[in-house]
Design a protein around this nucleic acid. Structure first.
Lengths: 346, 346
DNA sequence: TTGTAGGCGTTATCAG
DNA sequence: CTGATAACGCCTACAA
């Protein structure tokens, strides 16, 4: 052993070229590989204090890091978690990804992102399927791109679903339901009796938008109002004006417009103003998000805000529960996650 | 072999519970594991047409997907690529991540995201180090969070750097240099002789912002003007007004303000308007990005735009070169990646 | 043209 | 208390 130490002492202390293996640690520490494995995995009680210390010190000195590949192979699953990101008008996707990745990192897992791409749901599911098959991840976090059937299939194959299964109210998950209902009811409260829903154009396939539009329609029906018109708004001034102009022509004023996000809402509001419509008055506009520039411009945007941290908290809890041994998650979107922020456009 | 086929025929054709292994394929196809491995890895020429077909068909029928863990273990590196994302005011991080992940996916690699977190550069580097050690990724893509020394260290340890090493002009990479220079020169052209740089407040540590501010200062010095003031702008109307008011008090009007992104620029522009300053005139504002709502509001924002696809093209090329065998990348930011978009705030 | 054997790094089981 | 042994799924010489 002293010889080994001598040999190692010549090399740079903390880093060897291709990282040390547990066999290296065992050899240098003068024990067997299984002893190293046991000690480094917490089975400390059944070894002599002296051996434990020596193994730990040696591992640290050699900069030993367990190989994910080796672990995965023998454990049957990796320490990777797949994060499926929908191709939709999500506000602050970056912050959401970052928050979830941070949570996973805290409990020792790494995040593999999987974006929906062009090619349709079936193609995306096939890609995800392949990813799960080859990576054998410890779990899957879905941000909304997967159908219940797809989630079933993935779970059936032994890939635990870490995110809470959305509870559907007539095909609409709680979050989108609360958002759209908040928008529609706010517009009604502000006196608008003709509503419309504004999609963001060109988002390849947006299930969220369709859900929300249907909820707005439901609110209208419940209030005995005509079904809302829908418009498709591009994120440029001229195109937005065209869309809003067309809406005013067919439906007249006043009209309250629920928008798929704050960007669309800003486009709609300024388009209406450019068309010499009164905002609020002729046109009421309410967005979703609240985190972007909507609150910086004049007129200040009315919008449904939600705290990113709160809205991902159920996912965090579920992750903690499944992977970190935390307590049973509440499972429901907490009250007050979504609130209407009254601005100057309603 | 016919017996095996019979047995399998009873099960659902495409999916078995825990994915089939290459041994399964070999057994069912009536060949050895190495034959399966060879054929599935493209060594097709040296087997009989009939065998190749049978192996392929069997693999497809069993839904065989090679285990990443097994591959990684024997190959010494995984098919994962680590994407290091800086904790900075990057425009469209989501789009960038998505584009890069798509490219990597095209050449058969999966993307593991690594965000900078609180704790300082050393801590983040240590986390990244551990990630590289345990995952043995096929490569690393850096979006700007790593120092040259850190890149050296990582490469030294056998983790290829897929993103082009930034060529520094006095500590500022080409992209940030072009952006800040474009902003400053545009303001000068529009007649502003007093410049300022507006940081986004509260971004934990923003090397990009400091780089750009230094470039603006350099442009001022070259033009024989006073050094630019710097202000720190929060993304709320009141705070932005305070910051702009303070700037006008100390530096007077007119002042041209280069902003760290479009959100900040919108905040500054509307804050100036709320303070009854003329925009443009008393206050000139130029942002960076062009993709957000800056082009939807009135006054329309002057900004330095860059096409996300173009600006990540060098990374794409480098990835293709290193991983996909594409031709040698050009290596430099193409001319015209960054252009000034004249709006109504200068 | 195909098969055999060995090893990648880890963990679990069981024997000492 | 500690160590030998056997997988996990894959790839690649080398042998036939």
């Amino acid at each position: 052993m002293s010889i080994e130490s001598e040999r190692l002492a010549v090399l740079p202390p903390t880093s060897r070229r291709p990282g040390a293996t547990s066999a290296d640690v065992a050899r240098v520490a003068g024990v067997s590989r299984s002893t190293v494995s046991h000690i480094l995995n917490g089975q400390v009680t059944r070894f002599s204090e002296e051996t434990v210390e020596r193994v730990r010190e040696t591992a640290a000195r050699l900069g030993y890091v367990p190989s994910a590949a080796g672990r995965s192979l023998v454990l049957g699953r990796s320490d990777l978690v797949v994060l499926a990101v929908p191709n939709t008008t999500l506000t602050n996707v970056q912050d959401i990804i970052e928050a979830i990745a941070a949570d996973l990192d805290d409990v020792g897992y790494n995040t593999v992102v999987h974006f929906d791409r062009g090619g349709g749901p079936a193609d995306n599911l096939a890609r995800l399927q392949h990813l799960v098959d080859t990576l054998r991840p410890a779990g899957l976090v879905d941000l909304g791109s997967l159908s219940p059937a797809a989630l079933d299939a993935l779970e059936e194959q032994g890939c635990p679903l870490l995110s809470p299964r959305p509870r559907n109210v007539r095909g609409v998950d709680e979050g989108n339901y609360a958002i759209a209902r908040g928008q529609a009811e706010h517009l009604l409260e502000r006196g608008y009796t003709t509503l419309a829903y504004a999609y963001l154009v060109d988002r390849r396939d947006d299930p969220f938008g369709r859900m929300r539009a249907s909820v707005v329609a439901e609110v209208c029906a419940d209030a005995g109002l005509a079904a809302p018109a829908t418009i498709s708004v591009p994120l440029d001034a001229a195109g937005a004006q065209t869309a809003v102009c067309e809406l005013l022509r067919t439906r007249g004023a006043p009209v309250g417009i629920a928008c798929s996000n704050d960007e669309v809402a800003v486009a709609v509001a300024f388009a209406a103003l450019a068309l010499r419509a009164a905002v609020p008055g002729d046109v009421g506009v309410v967005g979703v998000g609240g985190g972007s520039v909507g609150q910086l411009v004049t007129p200040r945007l009315s919008t449904v805000t939600f705290d990113v941290r709160t809205s991902v908290s159920s996912i965090r809890q579920a992750i903690g529960h499944a992977l970190g041994g935390a307590e049973e998650p509440a499972g429901s979107v907490p009250e007050g996650t979504f609130t209407v922020l009254q601005g100057e456009t309603t």
